[in-house]
């Protein structure tokens, strides 16, 4: 009985740690505090209530969605001169830190 419990615990732990590893890999260099600091640049325009006409809310956005959007501005697939300029100077660590912070912020 006891060995069965240990066995399942190890399996669950492995699954869980794999999940963590997968997320870590996806968000290399992500740092919550750095993301919070960088987000100061976003909130000059992006209202956290989402009530601003013309500019969408970005807090609470899933990390993958945020990263995809920023990369589309960076490669200029998506149009918008301001966002292309913002994305232009964001490196991987910065994008991932922002993604992490914004995903965990209301």
């Amino acid at each position: 009985m006891k060995s069965k419990f240990v066995f399942f615990s190890i399996i669950i732990l492995l699954l869980f740690s794999n999940k963590i590893l997968a997320d870590d890999k996806a968000l290399a260099g992500a740092d919550f505090e750095y993301g919070q600091h960088l987000s100061g640049e976003c909130v000059t325009c992006h209202n956290s209530t989402g009530l601003g006409q013309g500019i969408p809310k970005i807090t609470g956005m899933k990390t993958a969605v945020f990263i995809k959007k920023i990369l589309a501005y960076k490669t200029k697939e998506k149009d918008n001169a301001v966002m292309q300029m913002v994305a232009d100077r964001l490196g991987e660590e910065e994008i991932n830190s922002l993604a992490l912070y914004l995903s965990k912020t209301k």
Partner: peptide, 17 residues
């Protein structure tokens, strides 16, 4: 028109900030 609407969003954003 989109640029104007963006400016409205910016005003809302910066004053909230």
């Amino acid at each position: 028109k989109a640029t104007y609407e963006e400016s409205i969003g910016w005003y809302s954003g910066i004053t909230s900030d």
